[in-house]
Each structure stands twice: as C-alpha cells, then as structure tokens.
Amino acid sequence: MKQLTKAEEEIMQILWEIGEGTVKDVLEGFVEKQPAYTTVATVLKVLKKKEIVDNKAIGNTYIYSPKISKEEYSSYQMKHLLNNYFGGSFKRLATFFAKDNDMDIEELEFMLKESESKTNPKK
C-alpha cells in the first residue's frame, strides 16, 4: 500500500463515507471550500493508478469506489507511524500519547493491557 497525500486522503475520507460516487458526488462531500472539479478528477485518477480506488464507466461518467477499507488504511497508517517514529514500540507510542494528552495512570495501564492482550491472547 502506498502513502496518501493530504488531498488524496481527503477524497478517500469522502469516498469511504459515501461508498461510491462520481466526481460531482465527491465534490459535494467537501464541507469547507470545494476544490475545482478538474482537481478532484485528477486526484481520483492518481488514486486509481495507485490501486486505492476502482472505477466503472456508465456512459461517459465514471463511478469511483474504494478498493481498500478505511480500517485497512488506518491499520497501515498506524503501523507506519509506529515503525517510523517509535521504533516499532507500542510502549513508546503510548508513553508519547500519555504525555502529550495528559493521560492518567489508569488510562495508560488500560492501553498497555489492551496491547498485551492483542499480542499475547493467552494472557
């Protein structure tokens, strides 16, 4: 899987929400300022090339749909973050978030227990 740019991720968030749609449908999904039609069309073509979306032609219109789920991409992103910024250590990641979000010890212990149960299901 390839890393998405901010623009690609914004469009994917909309596609995950609507399931499938035309360029116009994606444009309608923007809450803030809408980008140009041609910009969205170009980004969707790039996402197709990256094999993140698929499309089907209906007449002279394309309907785009995600090839990967939001959960799959989220998992990829978290693994990327964990490996590239925290040396693959969930404990270092948890410590960072605990400090950054002023978590109390109970919340931190819960996170660590959850991570242990996921990696060692027999515990």
Rank of each mutant, 00 (worst) to 15 (best):
E32D: 11
I52D: 01
E32K: 10
V26L: 04
A41R: 08
K45E: 09
H80I: 04
V26I: 11
Y37F: 13
Y37C: 00
F30E: 03
Y76M: 15
T42Q: 07
K79Y: 14
D25H: 11
Y37P: 00
D25G: 03
E32F: 04
V43M: 03
Y64G: 05
K24G: 05
E28C: 04
A41D: 04
V46A: 06
K48T: 07
H80R: 15
D54E: 14
T61L: 12
G21H: 01
T42M: 06
K50R: 11
M78E: 14
D25Y: 03
Y73W: 13
T61A: 12
H80W: 13
T42D: 06
V40C: 03
Y73Q: 11
P66V: 10
A36D: 11
M78R: 14
K45Q: 09
E20I: 00
S69Y: 10
E71T: 14
I68E: 11
K49R: 11
P35R: 05
V31Y: 04
L27E: 03
E51I: 01
Q77K: 15
K67G: 07
K49S: 10
L44V: 04
I63K: 02
M78H: 12
Y64Q: 07
E72H: 10
S75W: 09
V40N: 03
T42N: 12
D54C: 02
D54V: 00
V26M: 04
I58W: 01
K70H: 14
S69F: 09
P66C: 13
L47I: 06
V40G: 03
K45H: 04
K79E: 15
L27A: 02
S69Q: 10
K49T: 07
I68T: 11
T39E: 04
F30P: 02
V26R: 03
T39H: 10
G19C: 04
Q34A: 09
N60L: 10
T38Y: 08
I63F: 02
K33Q: 11
K50M: 06
M78C: 07
V46W: 00
V26Y: 03
T39I: 01
Y73L: 14
Y73H: 15
I63L: 13
A41P: 00
K50L: 13
K48S: 10
N60I: 06
K56H: 06
S74R: 15
Y62M: 09
Y76T: 12
A36S: 05
A36N: 07
L47P: 08
V26G: 04
S74C: 09
T39W: 03
E32H: 06
G19F: 02
G59S: 11
G21Y: 00
K48L: 11
